[in-house]
Write a protein that binds this DNA or RNA. Structure first.
Lengths: 198, 198
DNA sequence: GGTTTAAACGGACCCCGGTCCGCTTTCATT
DNA sequence: AATGAAAGCGGACCGGGGTCCGTTTAAACC
């Protein structure tokens, strides 16, 4: 993209201009504030732009779309969660037996999922994160399944275990099937027990 | 559903006025035609109205929303599928062992789901059908699980088995995980085998 | 400091889903 | 056939997401 570069930048990452970076920051801040003081649904792009003191076009140039902006907002939380999974304390993080980690993984996903349900829905399948936090999660679950010694199509099995943890499914369970959170947590344990028994 | 009814109507169902019924029919026809000749996404409410020769307001009065209209379009197909499940030939319909019916159910849902993915997505969680064809399906799956003799929280387990059959999950598997249809079908068989083994 | 150029900016503009309300049509009653 | 009221109708209108393009600005090079 930039053939006349002097310092070798990390691969193909083009640095942002100062004003662009400043606007990105203030837009994220503005969006976060607005989300905090009202429900996600009623946060409009124009409002975010106004609050950040920039034009609407700028919001779209920086974040592609509404979904993109929401995904960016989510990134902080999501990254923290992924860090907890990859290197936090057991049983969610490494150090516990794979089975226990899988149990903890589900419980943790149910909690964070429901806590940020609004944002996650609004983020849709934006950008690199295809559907919820699926890419990362499926690799992780697949890995744990392997460690446990499960055989078969682990990639498919991983997506099947992840599916009941998706926001729309969880909301359907809570709002239309009348399941309590407790019951869902317990159900996850039971599902794992069934799938993993030898 | 049957506008030319002579017998007393069931309870509080108010019959539609002649012009209203006529418009409902032509709107559905117009929508079906438009959907057929281009992808669902680019079918706008105004276009449907124009084609049916009515005002836009009429479309919304008859079908509530875009989702409602799409759900109505889907109803024919969906009803046929439900009929096949409830009273069609085995193994999908009654007559086969419950296990086999569950296997057939998944395969059938994967096929019909992907075939009408566009409409189903566009129908969202409109009206009575909360999320995909979930209400009906969860009752059915729950029933089959009972027949098989599975014990535990069947309601939750049913939603867990249904989750991997949802359109977004299927599309994620096909488009981002690179799974083939064959692999998904096999995976379903395998998932059932794991969950149902005694 | 001046020049140049690619990037960023902003807000007018477009499209679409959805609402509103004054006018028209149906149809039950007489 | 006339009439009254409830239901239906249609299209102007609104708000929100997304695009476009003439103008401004950062920053690399002189």
């Amino acid at each position: 993209m930039d053939p006349s570069r002097l310092l070798p930048l990390a691969d193909d990452v083009v640095p942002e201009r100062a004003d662009a970076a400043r606007n990105r920051t203030s837009l994220l801040a503005a969006a976060a504030e607005l989300v905090e003081q009202s429900s996600v649904e009623e946060v409009t792009m124009a409002a975010v732009a106004r609050r950040a003191g920039v034009g609407k076009g700028t919001v779209f140039r920086r974040f592609e779309s509404r979904e993109g902006l929401m995904a960016a907002l989510l990134d902080h939380t999501e990254a923290a969660w992924q860090a907890a999974v990859l290197s936090g304390p057991p049983p969610l993080g490494p150090g516990a037996p794979a089975r226990d980690r899988l149990v903890a993984f589900g419980h943790s996903r149910i909690e964070t999922g429901l806590r940020h349900a609004g944002l996650i829905r609004a983020a849709g399948q934006a950008a690199s994160r295809p559907y919820a936090a699926v890419s990362f999660s499926s690799v992780h679950v697949r890995h744990l399944l392997g460690e446990i010694g499960v055989t078969g199509d682990l990639t498919y099995l991983a997506t099947c275990l992840l599916a009941p943890l998706e926001i729309p499914v969880l909301q359907q369970q809570v709002e239309h099937e009348g399941l309590t959170l407790d019951r869902i947590h317990h159900g996850w344990d039971d599902l794992l027990a069934r799938v993993l028994r030898d």
